[in-house]
Amino acid sequence: MELTIEFPVEQDDIFTQPSHLPQGFCICYQHNVDDAGYGPYGFHTAKSEILLKRALGPLTYWNSERGQLVDADIPKADGIYFFREQGYVTTMNSELMIYQKSQAIQALRDRYKKTSPSTPSSAKPILLEVAQGRRMSGAAISKILENNCSFLISYSRITEMGQILIFFDTTLRANIRKTAEEEGIKYITEKSIDDLKPW
């Protein structure tokens, strides 16, 4: 048996300044579940990949290591994934490219010890503020939400639950549940992450 499990976000574990954020919801995935409810976690099965592709559609992933937005079919690596065709994603990408260009020009000027022209420096783009080590900036996430931008966050727990997907757009809940049921995947809701069986 395969399960999609919903539970509330444990904001203190994942975000800095979590008080800035609304209450979202998480899902994780359990497969090869035995009669006692035990089984490994993670979106590792063919059914789980179909669920993610159908329920979420094409995504754009912020690759913080490469410093760019890249297309993604399903969420795999940890980080933030935006739903495609959103105006604010285009705006964030434009701000990022302007900033990166100005930084590259400044680096060349510094290298050849040339005087910088008296032009105002570009503000640091919001995308560069999102990730803070293993945690996410609550302030940056809050700003993205204020711009009516829909996204998910992928976060991995080392001990249990495997990959967790975090959502703040609660309208997505019904579509995820409906898609899971159509694919023959049981959808259950727990009151807390502590209610999940360890593995």
Rank of each mutant, 00 (worst) to 15 (best):
E2C: 07
E2M: 11
E2D: 12
I5Y: 02
I5Q: 07
E6A: 08
E6M: 06
E10L: 14
E10W: 00
D12Y: 07
T16I: 06
Q17W: 02
Q17C: 01
P18V: 15
H20W: 05
G24D: 11
F25N: 08
I27D: 02
C28I: 09
Q30E: 06
N32L: 13
N32H: 15
V33G: 04
V33P: 03
D34H: 10
D34I: 11
G37C: 04
G37S: 04
Y38P: 01
Y38I: 00
Y38Q: 02
G39K: 13
G42A: 09
H44T: 08
T45D: 10
T45G: 06
A46Y: 13
I50T: 05
I50N: 01
L51I: 14
L52A: 11
K53D: 03
R54S: 10
R54A: 08
G57S: 14
T60G: 00
T60D: 02
W62M: 03
S64Q: 10
R66H: 09
G67K: 06
Q68M: 14
Q68S: 05
D71N: 13
A72T: 05
A72G: 03
D73M: 06
P75S: 02
A77N: 07
D78Y: 02
I80H: 02
R84K: 10
R84N: 11
Q86G: 05
Y88L: 04
V89Y: 03
V89G: 03
T91E: 14
T91M: 11
N93A: 09
N93L: 08
S94Y: 13
E95W: 10
L96E: 04
I98N: 12
I98A: 13
Q100M: 12
K101H: 05
A104Y: 12
A104S: 09
K113I: 01
S116M: 10
S118Y: 09
T119M: 07
T119C: 08
P120N: 12
S121G: 04
S121I: 11
S121N: 09
A123R: 13
A123I: 06
A123S: 13
K124I: 15
P125V: 05
P125C: 06
I126E: 12
L127N: 07
L127T: 04
L127K: 11
A131W: 02
Q132R: 15
G138W: 13
G138E: 13
A139G: 07
A140T: 11
S142N: 15
K143L: 09
K143Q: 09
K143H: 12
I144T: 04
I144F: 02
S150A: 05
F151T: 11
L152M: 10
S154M: 09
S154V: 07
Y155R: 11
Y155F: 13
R157S: 09
I158E: 03
I158G: 00
I158V: 05
T159C: 02
E160N: 05
E160P: 00
E160A: 07
G162T: 05
I164C: 00
I164V: 15
L165R: 09
I166V: 15
I166L: 14
F167I: 06
R173S: 06
A174D: 15
N175C: 05
T179L: 14
A180E: 01
E182H: 01
E183S: 03
G184Y: 04
I185E: 01
I185Q: 03
K186I: 03
K186Q: 12
K186P: 00
K186G: 03
Y187V: 05
T189M: 01
E190M: 12
K191N: 11
S192C: 15
I193F: 00
I193P: 00
D194A: 14
D195N: 07
W199L: 09
W199H: 12
